[in-house]
Design a protein around this nucleic acid. Structure first.
Length: 648
RNA sequence: GCCUUCUUAGCUCAGUGGUAGAGCAACGCACUUGUAAUGCGUAGGUCAUCAGUUCAACUCUGAUAGAAGGCUCCA
């Protein structure tokens, strides 16, 4: 049979040669480092015979697909180790993930103290070079083989009728699995259990919680070491840690869970962002509203939020009360209905659309106690919220303008590591959505057309839409690798009807506006968290809570330093003076540790000449800068929101 | 809400069934400093809270609260 290689070369091999044979024919090193083989685009075991003319490529342990195979195999090896140590445990599911793998077990109750024993057992299995044998079985045979593994049985029963059922045997472990796998466990040179966690069977909180073991594996020890060091560096930027070290926020259990308090520095950061966003939005045709932090439950009954989300709302009064006369209020979980009421205060003509309302709105959501996280998931937060009421023919242009605004913010903040997600409804879970399939079909196709036209790469996610419409979500990852939505733009054909919103068209007829719900910079707290992590605390000059720290050489310079501080404050720059009787080295160090972008030093010669010595965070020092020149440069950096500054 | 782990001074962390320690920060004194830690001294803690075991609990057990990671949820 003919084997075609990725470079186009064609070689003749005997019928039923394996991927391993093919690799070996090229070099022994390749065979040794191969993880799997891709035959006509399908990944399969190296040991599987190839039966017909095929295009093949050898996947090595260093390829990302090969690393996935290795990690998936490592998950099996770990399962074998767990089964050896805890024979009563039950297997659930164990795939490779982006940076490792996990395996879920039932009837397993490990604590951290048990991890070393598992790692030892895995080492043994790696040394044993346990083979992975792929075996094809009938459904009835599979049900018999896995009769003691209830989760595998459930899975077999979930498989489509025509699915070929395979399992892998590695030592004493028999695991229902599609593969492919390594030839044997010997290639798993580096293995580590990362952490224990809980996870619901099939990801459904109505199901039993299983024990999940997260681990990672590499084909050599250095890769593992590099990975762990990379994790360590990333976690050093954890906003939850840095944010407190840099004196941006605190928490206190007497205030409550998910209720961080911003310090003066944190507050300055937030205010700077808010002013930036509000000014930019005003310049782009938004009008700002100020609406109440709470509303009667009737408002949310009309919008539909009450039925779906009342458990997640902070309610004042008895939410179960059937008495219509009893006043029941809710702290607002979003501002949409408030702004609709503002829109409805008077009639609108087609000529005045689009109406763009924005608000820096404080919102309250009763998040589940276990889901709160630093500044990222909190119970009171501030959203750069907005709603655009427009005609159907304006949707595209308005949506594009929103994207342009968002891109401007992302670019100004130098955020690059984000992705787009097209969030759609789930037709099989209609309880969560306004159940009008034709409307969903329409709104999703409109949004899809806009996204495709923009050329932006996006992933599609079923079941992630808002209950009233599809969304474009901008997703970012925190230092732990967990993805969150930072910004969302939603297309809503539904709520205008519920609130009886209208405009008069050119023919004098009443029409429903289409509503675009949008955030521009997201939730300020969450965005701040991601900024802290992305910058590692080193904010650009315009955003830094303290922009300039003035250091004095000796006490006689203090009056000049204080006078300079006042001068800087008057022009809107944020400066303070370190007048401690410490050495200059010490004061420089303190300022650098606080990541203050500009450090000024004043001694006798500076006072005499009306100059400053300017040090930037990178350690560069520029001497004898005229105070006025310094101020002018700072004002330009501040106004331009420059990411890099220099006083040379 | 569920799973694992954690909670000792403002911060970072030691520590042991016999009553608590360091570094940094703070404060005081001396030093008056030229670009990443001057020296000496002082003060600071019912060891998260509550209950139990014990002659004795910061240490062991349980509950509660809060925190970290994961799962679920996320308008």
């Amino acid at each position: 049979m003919k084997i075609t290689f990725p470079d186009g070369k064609i070689s003749e091999f005997p019928q039923n040669s394996t991927g391993y044979d093919v690799a070996l024919s090229i070099s022994e090193g390749l065979a040794r480092n191969s993880a799997a083989v891709k035959v006509n685009g399908t990944l399969q075991d190296l040991t599987a015979p190839i039966t017909t003319d095929s295009e093949i490529s050898i996947i090595t342990l260093k390829d990302s697909e090969g690393l996935d195979v290795l990690r998936h195999s490592a998950a099996h090896v770990m399962a074998l180790a767990v089964k050896r140590l805890y024979p009563e445990s039950k297997l659930a599911f164990g795939p490779a993930t982006e940076d490792g793998f996990f395996y879920d077990f039932d009837d397993l109750h490990l604590t951290d103290a048990d991890i070393p024993a598992i790692e030892e057992e895995v080492k043994k299995i790696v040394k044993e070079k346990v083979e992975f044998q792929r075996i094809v079985v009938s459904r009835s045979q599979a049900l018999e083989i896995f009769k003691d593994e209830p989760y595998k049985i459930e899975r077999i029963n979930d498989l489509p009728e025509d699915e070929i059922i395979t399992y892998y045997k590695s030592g004493d472990l028999i695991d229902l699995c599609r593969g492919p796998h390594l030839q044997n466990s010997g290639a798993i040179k580096a293995f580590k259990v990362m952490r224990l966690a809980g996870a619901y069977w099939k990801g459904d909180s109505n199901n039993k919680m299983l024990q999940r073991i997260y681990g990672t594996a590499f084909s050599d020890k250095k890769d593992l070491k590099d990975y762990l060091e990379m994790r360590e560096r990333a976690e050093a930027n954890d906003h939850n840690k840095l944010g407190r070290e840099l004196d941006l926020f605190v928490t206190d259990k007497r205030v409550g869970k998910g209720l961080p308090l911003l310090t003066p520095r944190g507050s300055t950061l937030k205010r700077t962002l808010i002013r930036f966003v509000e000014d930019e939005e005003l310049s782009r045709g938004y009008e700002y509203t100020t609406t109440p932090f709470m509303a009667n439950k009737e408002l949310y009954q009309v919008s539909g939020h009450w039925d779906l989300y009342k458990d997640g709302m902070f309610i004042l009064g008895d939410k179960e009360s059937q008495d219509d006369k009893e006043e029941v209020l809710s702290l607002r979980p979003m501002t949409c209905p408030h702004q609709y009421i503002v829109y409805n205060r008077r009639p609108h003509t087609y000529k005045e659309l689009p109406v763009r309302y924005a608000e820096t709105s404080t919102l309250f959501r009763n998040e589940a106690s276990g889901s709160m996280h630093g500044l990222i998931r909190i119970r009171q937060f501030t959203l750069s919220e907005g709603h655009i009421m427009c005609r159907p023919d304006q949707i595209e242009e308005e949506f594009e303008a929103v994207l342009d605004l968002i891109n401007y913010f992302m670019k100004t903040l130098d955020l690059k590591d984000y992705s787009y997600r097209f969030s759609k409804w789930d037709p099989n879970n209609t309880d969560k959505y306004i159940n009008n399939p034709e409307a969903w079909e329409h709104s999703q196709s409109v949004l899809k057309k806009i996204l495709d036209k923009s050329g932006m790469p996006y992933t599609e996610a079923e079941g992630e839409a808002a209950f009233y419409g599809p969304k474009l979500d901008i997703q970012m990852k925190n230092v732990w690798g967990k993805e969150d939505t930072v910004i969302t733009v939603q297309l809503d054909y539904a709520l205008a009807d519920r609130f009886d919103m209208k405009y008069i068209d050119a023919n004098g007829e009443e029409k429903r506006p289409v509503i675009i719900h949008r955030s521009s910079i997201g939730c300020y707290e969450r965005t701040m968290a991601l900024l802290i992590e992305q910058y590692g605390g080193k904010f650009p000059f315009w955003l830094a809570p303290d922009q300039i720290r003035i250091l004095t050489i000796n006490d006689s310079c203090h009056p000049a330093a204080e006078a300079l501080k006042v001068k800087l404050s008057r022009v809107g720059l944020r400066a303070d003076v370190d007048s401690r009787s410490e050495t200059l080295k010490k004061k420089v160090r303190t300022a650098q540790m606080m990541k203050i972008p500009v450090i000024l030093t004043i001694g006798e010669s500076e006072v005499a000449n009306d100059t400053v010595s300017v040090r930037t965070l990178d350690g560069t020092v520029v001497q004898d800068v005229k105070v006025d020149d310094f101020i002018n440069k700072c004002l330009i950096f501040d106004r331009n929101r420059d990411l890099e500054i220099s006083f040379k």
